[in-house]
């Protein structure tokens, strides 16, 4: 079975460039309980990932269950933060833009860009 967390970050690395993140540059650290650390370096939309880095501009901490729910489109990142279940330290502007990557369409089966069914 595919691990959702791992698959999310692997997809980011495969993508290499994400236009939704064109406006930000920096490093985000995801500290996911029971899944360890993931780092994503963004340079005007260009993406690289790593499991091990010294520093990050912002750190997001949450449970693996909540993270996977965000990936699958079952949890909104903003309300997870508002509920106190995701801790963010550092550059909030970066996180605000980064959260556009949720959900991961290929994992959630939710096809974005489709019109409302009528």
């Amino acid at each position: 079975m595919i691990d959702t967390t791992q698959a999310f970050f692997e997809h980011l690395a495969e993508r290499g460039y994400e236009p939704l993140l064109h406006s930000i540059s920096g490093t985000i650290q995801w500290k996911i309980q029971d899944a360890g650390n993931w780092f994503v370096v963004v340079k005007n939309g260009k993406l690289t990932t790593s499991r091990n880095m010294a520093q990050a501009d912002c750190v997001c901490e949450c449970s693996k269950e909540d993270f996977d729910r965000m990936v699958m489109g079952k949890q909104n990142p903003t309300t997870l933060y508002f509920q106190g279940k995701m801790k963010i330290t550092g550059d909030l502007e970066f996180v605000q833009v980064f959260q556009r990557l949720f959900p991961d369409e290929s994992l959630s089966g939710v096809e974005q860009g489709k019109k409302e069914s009528r």
């Binding site: 939704l20 406006s23 909104n76 509920q83 605000q96 833009v97 409302e116």
Partner: peptide, 30 residues
Amino acid sequence: QRQGTRIDDFRDEEPGKILHEARFGEMTAF
């Protein structure tokens, strides 16, 4: 920064849409 990127019926969100109103209280959080 907050431009819509996904389809979300609850928030009336659609890709490219500009937001109407942002709130931060408990009812919004939950």
